[in-house]
Design a protein around this nucleic acid. Structure first.
Length: 205
DNA sequence: CTCGCGATCTGCT
DNA sequence: GCAGATCGCGAGG
C-alpha cells in the first residue's frame, strides 16, 4: 500500500503542481538504521531564475548547483547559519526549481525524533517549521544532492493518503519580503486544519 | 498567546 | 558588511 515516488515524479515541469502533490506524501529517512517518517503537510514552491525569492535567482553557485540537476535530488542548505532546510529538486536538467518542505506530521520513529530535538514529549512543535523537521529527521548537508527515489537513506512514499483540492490552502511564502512582487505569489501550500502547520510570518510585500 | 532578540554561516553587494 | 526560505527563550498580557 506504500509506493516510493519514482524518478519520473520529480521531472514534472510545473513546480507549483508538485508542491501541491507532495502534500499527504510521506518523507522517510533511515539514518544509521534509525527510521523516521512524517506526512508532508506544508510546502512552498520556488521556481528558477525568474522567481525573485528563489536561491537560483542570481545563477549557479556552489550552494545552489544541485538545483540545476534534474529533479529527484535533495537540496539542503544552512539558513541563518544554524538551521538546515530541506528542498526537493524538481524539473528537468538545467531548470532550477525546488519545493521547500516546511512541516510534517510525525508518523514513525517518534522516540528518535524527540531525542534529536531534545524534547521530553510530543507537541506540535516537533516537526513544525523547516529547520525543526530537518533536525527531527536528521537531515543536514550529508543529504545534499542525494537521490530521493532509491529507498535508501532518504526517500518519499505515497501511502495512499488522499488530499483533495478543498483540503489544500495557499498563501504567500514565508519570509520572502525582499522578493518584490514575487513575495505575493500564493506558492505556500498546506493541509487545512493540520496542527503541525508552521506559524511563520507571511510576507506580502 | 505575542513580542523581541541572539545564535552563527553563506554568498551577494 | 549585511541580510537571510529560522528557532527557542524569556518577559509581558
Amino acid at each position: 500500500m506504500s509506493q516510493i515516488l519514482s524518478a519520473d515524479f520529480f521531472l514534472q515541469q510545473d513546480v507549483v503542481a508538485v508542491a501541491k502533490q507532495l502534500l499527504g506524501k510521506v518523507l522517510v529517512t533511515d539514518i544509521n538504521g534509525e527510521i523516521t517518517a512524517g506526512m508532508i503537510v506544508e510546502t512552498e514552491a520556488y521556481s528558477g531564475h525568474l522567481d525573485k525569492a528563489c536561491h537560483a535567482r542570481s545563477g549557479k553557485t556552489k550552494r545552489t548547483s544541485v538545483m540545476y540537476h534534474e529533479g529527484g535530488v535533495a537540496y539542503v542548505y544552512l539558513c541563518y547559519g544554524i538551521h538546515h532546510l530541506f528542498n526537493v529538486v524538481t524539473n528537468i536538467n538545467h531548470f532550477p526549481d525546488a519545493v521547500l518542505v516546511r512541516a510534517l506530521e510525525p508518523l514513525e520513529g517518534l522516540d528518535v525524533m524527540l531525542r534529536r530535538r531534545v524534547k521530553p514529549k510530543l507537541t506540535h512543535t516537533l516537526t513544525s517549521g523547516p529547520g525543526s523537521l530537518s533536525k527531527a529527521m536528521a537531515i543536514d548537508l550529508n543529504q545534499y544532492g542525494r537521490k530521493l527515489f532509491t529507498g535508501k537513506n532518504i526517500w518519499i512514499e505515497d501511502r495512499g493518503i488522499e488530499v483533495t483540492a478543498d483540503k489544500i490552502k495557499s498563501t504567500p511564502r514565508i519570509g520572502v519580503a525582499y522578493a518584490g512582487t514575487d513575495a505575493m505569489l500564493p506558492w505556500r501550500f498546506y493541509m487545512d486544519g493540520n496542527k503541525y502547520i508552521s506559524k511563520g510570518k507571511i510576507s506580502y510585500i
